[in-house]
């Protein structure tokens, strides 16, 4: 902000507000992080104090890492999330481009039909999905999860991206056509880069629910080989005894990749390569 527009009082008020919201939002994460480094006793006795030499302990992390397949779960989650996001963005953007760019009969209805999925929770169809997966032999595969998450994410992706695709300049696409670019080249080389911020938004929206989901991994892919991180962490939560050290450590570790993905996407979100491109 330039000096002329800076106003101290406003700036203090705004920052106070933002800071308090940040603290509020980060507090649970903070509690999880500090407690993951404490002994079980210390967790229950002083849950809000940071670890000190007395209470410091890595027992949670040791349990988690010794649990053997933790890295494997981790990998499963990563594969499922990244591949699902990839398909959501690819198919979502393609559908959005078609809906925004081409005039065909039923264009509007098709858009509405695709957007309808936003309002209908996919979990309602769990039984049918399970039957389908059994019939196609996809139970206990990561493919099953990827398919379900792609379907779950597409409606919102199509809806949001269509709006943004409509804003891509017609002149730019037409210039491409005159220069001999194919419709695919126009989509991938001209339209996609211009809607990158919107794609990042869609990715961030979809990433967390997929990463955290317990429902579908539990139902469609509970085998040892296909367990995701969230499902894998459940072994530490027993009916009678819960290994809190391990749960907290697993949760702390699970934050890292989400954070990494978020950083990647938010950079895209901010980068404005389109500025001054068309006009």
């Amino acid at each position: 902000m330039n000096k002329a527009r800076r106003n101290l009082a406003h700036s203090i008020a705004a920052h106070t507000l933002l800071l308090s919201y940040t603290i509020l939002a980060l507090f649970p994460v903070f509690v999880i992080l500090i407690n993951s480094f404490k002994t079980r006793k210390a967790i229950f006795r002083h849950p809000l104090t940071p670890p000190n030499p007395d209470s410091f302990s890595l027992v949670g992390y040791e349990t988690v890492l010794k649990q053997g397949d933790f890295f494997h779960y981790f990998q499963n989650s990563m594969i499922v999330t990244v591949v699902s996001l990839f398909f959501i963005l690819l198919f979502g953007a393609m559908a959005a481009f078609a809906l925004a760019e081409y005039r065909f009969r039923g264009n509007v209805w098709m858009g509405l039909y695709l957007a309808l999925g936003i309002m209908i929770p996919i979990r309602i169809g769990t039984v049918a999905i399970l039957q389908m997966m059994v019939a196609s032999g996809l139970v206990n595969t990561l493919t099953a999860l990827i398919l379900v998450y792609t379907a779950q994410g597409l409606p919102l992706a199509v809806f949001i991206l269509t709006e943004f695709m409509k804003q891509v300049s017609d002149d730019l696409k037409n210039a491409g056509r005159i220069d001999g670019l194919s419709e695919y080249a126009i989509f991938f080389r001209l339209a996609l880069p211009l809607v990158r911020p919107a794609m990042a938004t869609v990715a961030v929206f979809n990433m967390i629910p997929i990463w955290n989901d317990l429902w579908f991994p539990l139902i469609l892919a509970p085998s040892e080989a296909t367990k995701t991180l969230t499902l894998g962490s459940q072994v530490f939560i027993g009916q009678f005894v819960t290994n809190w050290n391990a749960v907290l450590a697993a949760l702390s570790l699970a934050i890292i990749p989400v954070l990494a993905l978020y950083v990647i996407f938010s950079r895209q979100l901010i980068r404005g390569i389109t500025a001054g491109a068309v006009k």
């Binding site: 300049s169 002149d171 037409n174 210039a175 491409g176 006009k279």
Partner: peptide, 8 residues
């Protein structure tokens, strides 16, 4: 074109 339509 009026809007130049250069490839950004």
């Amino acid at each position: 074109f009026q809007t130049y339509a250069l490839y950004p």
